[in-house]
Design a protein around this nucleic acid. Structure first.
Lengths: 226, 226
DNA sequence: CAAGCAAGTCACGGTTTGATAACGCTTTTT
DNA sequence: AAAAAGCGTTATCAAACCGTGACTTGCTTG
């Protein structure tokens, strides 16, 4: 999942970038509103974390401008403790959640995971597709009650496909959501990843959840239950 | 386990810090409500001890503000003997237990142990995971009815993993819970501790309760019984 | 003070990982 | 039908990650 972080305080920015990159997200970050607006307009993010007090363009206006361009990824705003009134303006401007500084990293992660999941239309963290069950909280994948051991990238790929099940995802879209801005789009990582995933998932029976649409992309083809 | 102590009287604060650090907890302490609120918002504590009569921000408001931020570690409040009515307000504000001054240190310890145990969702002080039995009261660990001799840090590591069994715990999370705020996160203590633990636990049979998830952390993989 | 132990650091090595490249098969285009 | 494009598969390699033994430090204790 790709995340846009806009935070002016360098130390917090760096520590958040590091923390969020570690397992869950591909992070691009900006230190002011102008650069942030540029990035947000230019790339397809899945979620944004935006500090309200920013130089150049303030957070509220930034959000308004993004929303005016019909850029609709969910946004979580950060407000300083003294300025909790800002949260109201932020939510009115089109933000989806807020967190008051200072906060726990784990808390931020939990909220972001919930936001991205809900934005794709899934209420529960457990996704059931017949004999394939995906737990987005513990990052475990079960096939017929047996746990698969997937690497991080394998898991992230599968999760993105599953969250967007029944939709055709182009390889470009997949790369853009799994990697950050400076990544070679001509690589064949995706093919390799898909290959490895299919092999692990299909080890026993004949479960082929990922369909190829030649020239268009891939589609996670299982129906979601409950 | 990490504990937050907020107490304005310097002498009591220091003696409590010393006593609690001695065996059970990594203690951060604050002398007024403002600093306490900051610490409590910033770090992932497992339990808090808060004096009700505090300068800057009083204990009741402090607890309310923490709870409003969805910070939910259990809190034990200390009330002066004359002001025992405060306990009601405190519990209403979101505290979990109280103790009237003066008290015995051992009494405080017993209450705290009970609180942390309950907050992780375990009623009894004895945790059974097959042939591995953990007594959180006496801090003894039995494997096939034979007692292991673990050091404090080894025990604390194992306890934290066991209390959060089946969840993936990153090395960062472990470090943050085992040590207080200023500890080098780049150290490899955790790897060493896990190594020593595994060696002691697995001495005889082939009991491998701690799984490694490369790039993500560790997971205590035994199912809890009863 | 010397011995003993707890606990942290360091350095080395094995293993896993993820990116890339190369090759071949299949479908589409010319 | 030949050429080109798209995709699957396998091999390879460097970097990251983790485990481990040896060493160091500091505390406790007889």
């Amino acid at each position: 999942m790709r995340l846009l972080l806009i935070e002016d305080e360098p130390q917090l920015r760096q520590s958040l970038q590091q923390f969020l990159s570690k397992t869950d997200y591909s992070v691009d970050s900006a230190g002011d509103g102008k650069e942030g607006l540029y990035l947000g307009s230019e790339h397809p993010y899945d979620v944004g974390v935006i500090d309200i007090g920013l130089p150049e363009i303030n957070g509220i206006d930034l959000i308004k401008q993004l929303r005016a361009q019909h850029i609709d990824f969910p946004i979580l705003i950060l407000t300083a403790r003294g300025h909790w009134e800002d949260k109201v303006k932020g939510l009115e401007a089109g933000a989806d959640d807020y967190l008051v500084k200072p906060f726990h990293n784990e808390e931020l992660r939990a909220r972001l995971n919930a936001l991205t999941r809900r934005s794709k239309g899934h209420a529960s963290p457990v996704l059931c597709y017949g004999s394939l069950v995906l737990n987005t909280a513990s990052k475990q994948v079960l096939v017929d009650d047996a746990e698969l051991s997937l690497t991080q990238y394998e898991y992230n790929t599968l999760e993105y496909l599953a969250l967007n099940h029944q939709r055709v995802i182009s390889k470009t879209e997949l790369t853009e959501h799994l990697y950050d801005q400076d990544f070679d789009l001509d690589s064949n990582v995706i093919e390799v990843l898909i290959g490895r995933l299919r092999k692990k998932i299909d080890r026993n029976g004949l479960l082929k959840p990922i369909a190829t649409l030649r020239g268009q992309g891939y589609r996670f083809a299982l129906e979601k239950e409950s």
